[in-house]
C-alpha cells in the first residue's frame, strides 16, 4: 500500500521540481531575450542617430550567438503539451537555431569578396590609345586586362584561386524612357573551360550565377580612372547556404502552424492563475 502511495507522491515531487526548473529556465530566457532586445535597441538608436548603416561586425555576431542560446533555452524551458499539434513550436525554434547555425558556419568557413572586372566591350581602341598615352600602359598591360581571371585578391591582399577562368565581355544598361533611370543591368560572362571550350552566361541583378561551388553576384557598374567601364562583382562561398535556407523555411512554416492553426496555438495560450492552461479563444 505504502509503495502504491509513494508513486504518485514521487511523480508530484518530480513534476514540482521540473516546474521549478522550467520556471528558472524561463526567467533566464526572459533575461537573455530582454538583454538582447535592449542591446539591439541601443545599437540601432545609436546608429540611427549617427545617420549611417548599422554595421557591427563583432557585436552582430555576439547578438546572433545570444539569440541562438536564448532560443535553445526556449525549446528546453517551454516544452509544451508534448502533443502532435505542437509540431509548429519545434519547427519554429529548431528552424531559427538551424538558420543561426548556417550564419555562424558562413561567418567561420565562408567568404565573400568584391572584385572589379573591366567590361571588355568598353575597352575600345580609343580608350586603349588614351591608356597608353596618358597613363603609360603597355600592350602587355592591356593584354593582361583582357585576359581571363582565375584568381582574385582577398581583403588582406591574399590571392584566392577561383577554380575557373572568366572575364566580362559585355555590359548592357537599359534605361526607362521617361526619367532615364536604370531599368536593367546585364553582364555577359565568358568562362574558359579546362577542355578549351568557351561558355557564355548572362549575369543580372537578383540572379547570381553558380560556378565551381561559388556564387557570382552583379553588384554595380562604374567608370574606371582609365576610361573603361568597370563591373563590380561579389564572389561568395557559403558552405552552409542550404542550412540557412532550410532554417528559414522551417521557421516560417512553424510560425504559421503555431499562430494560424487553431489546434496548434496551445503554446501561446495564457496560463490561468492556478497554473492550468486555458483556451484563450
Amino acid at each position: 500500500m505504502s509503495s502504491r502511495k509513494s508513486v504518485p507522491s514521487d511523480k508530484a515531487s518530480a513534476a514540482k521540481t521540473a516546474g521549478r526548473l522550467n520556471k528558472r529556465l524561463a526567467n533566464a530566457l526572459y533575461i537573455i531575450l530582454g538583454a538582447v532586445t535592449i542591446a539591439l535597441l541601443i545599437m540601432t538608436v545609436y546608429a540611427s542617430a549617427q545617420g549611417q548603416n548599422a554595421d557591427y561586425p563583432i557585436v552582430s555576431a555576439v547578438v546572433f550567438v545570444f539569440l541562438g542560446g536564448a532560443l535553445a533555452v526556449s525549446v528546453v524551458a517551454f516544452n509544451p503539451q508534448k502533443s502532435i499539434y505542437d509540431i509548429g513550436f519545434y519547427l519554429l525554434h529548431v528552424g531559427i537555431v538551424i538558420f543561426i547555425s548556417g550564419m555562424i558556419i558562413f561567418a567561420v568557413r565562408g567568404s565573400s569578396h568584391y572584385v572589379a572586372l573591366p567590361d571588355l566591350s568598353s575597352v575600345t581602341e580609343e580608350v586603349e590609345n588614351q591608356m597608353k598615352s596618358t597613363y603609360g600602359w603597355s600592350d602587355k598591360d592591356i593584354d593582361r586586362l583582357r585576359s581571363y581571371r582565375n584568381q582574385i585578391a582577398g581583403e588582406n591582399g591574399e590571392i584566392i584561386d577561383l577554380g575557373f577562368n572568366f572575364r566580362i565581355t559585355d555590359f548592357d544598361t537599359e534605361y526607362y524612357e521617361d526619367d532615364k533611370s536604370v531599368k536593367h543591368y546585364e553582364a555577359s560572362l565568358e568562362f574558359f573551360l579546362n577542355d578549351g571550350t568557351i561558355e557564355t552566361e548572362s549575369l543580372t541583378v537578383n540572379h547570381p550565377i553558380y560556378r565551381g561551388g561559388l556564387k557570382i553576384y552583379l553588384m554595380n557598374v562604374g567608370l574606371s580612372p582609365y576610361g573603361y567601364e568597370q563591373v563590380n562583382l561579389l564572389i561568395k562561398n557559403d558552405p552552409a547556404e542550404f542550412l540557412s535556407v532550410a532554417g528559414i523555411i522551417l521557421t516560417i512554416l512553424g510560425t504559421f502552424m503555431m499562430c494560424l492553426l487553431p489546434k496548434q496555438m496551445s503554446y501561446f495560450r495564457k496560463k490561468a492563475s492556478k497554473g492550468e492552461v486555458t483556451p484563450n479563444e
Binding site: 540601432t44 546608429a47 548603416n53 552582430s60 550564419m103 547570381p208 553576384y217 561579389l234 528559414i248
Partner: peptide, 9 residues
Amino acid sequence: WGSFWSWDL
C-alpha cells in the same frame, strides 16, 4: 546582395 542579413538600419 549576397548576404542573408546585413544589419542595415
